[in-house]
Design a protein around this nucleic acid. Structure first.
Lengths: 108, 108
DNA sequence: CCGTATCCGGAATGATACTG
DNA sequence: CAGTATCATTCCGGATACGG
């Protein structure tokens, strides 16, 4: 017998994670938001390579997956803040582990 | 100042990890191979949803990234075995953490 | 300031047939 | 058994323009 027969269910945790974080920028965005709450404009300036449309899309997907929280302040000019949810925070150590592994093992 | 200014280098570890594991099946394949060395046919039977062409491609990419080792036995009929490299093994705890996080937090 | 709407190209993935 | 070769398709991400 093998150890990990559990892993082959169609909705196994790993499959879901892969789907949730498949977006090209999601890990980076989560990492950035883990530092502190950020306004939309801050995020945009920090990631100039992402177009606004794409940035909005990825943020909304992260919100739907309950990894980040989006708060709209009804003021003029508008103000929108993004922050990690508890769920997102719980995932953060994994992101750090991936970063560390990458830094340690993928030098060039 | 923010804590993680390091994370925004263009070739930061996290970006590389995302690129390496972006493939739709790579996490699952690594997980599967972490159990033990597998022959091509075994892998194919375990993942019937992946076409042969795609499976070959993803395995070769993992090999190029030095996460898995591919060994060809020159016999008839041919025999090819795949196994994790040391580098791949070092990444395994992260996969487990992702799996656990998914199982714990993404129940429907 | 913080978005949405629309269109588009190319990469990622898939289906099918064939081979040493 | 373990692949290649081709062709089709889907889908992610990008460019650009416009809106409350």
């Amino acid at each position: 017998m093998t150890k990990n027969t559990k892993f082959r269910t169609p909705d196994c945790g790993l499959t879901k994670v892969q789907q949730m974080l498949g977006g090209k920028w999601k890990l980076l965005l989560l990492w950035y938001l883990s530092e502190e709450t950020r306004r939309f404009g801050e995020i945009r300036r920090c990631f100039p390579e992402i177009t606004e449309a794409m940035l909005t899309k990825q943020l909304r997907e992260l919100e739907q997956d309950k990894l980040i929280h989006r708060e709209v302040f009804k003021v003029v000019p508008p103000r929108v803040e993004y922050s990690l949810t508890d769920l997102g925070s719980k995932f953060f150590p994994i992101i750090e582990a991936m970063y560390d592994w990458g830094e340690e093992n993928l030098k060039n």
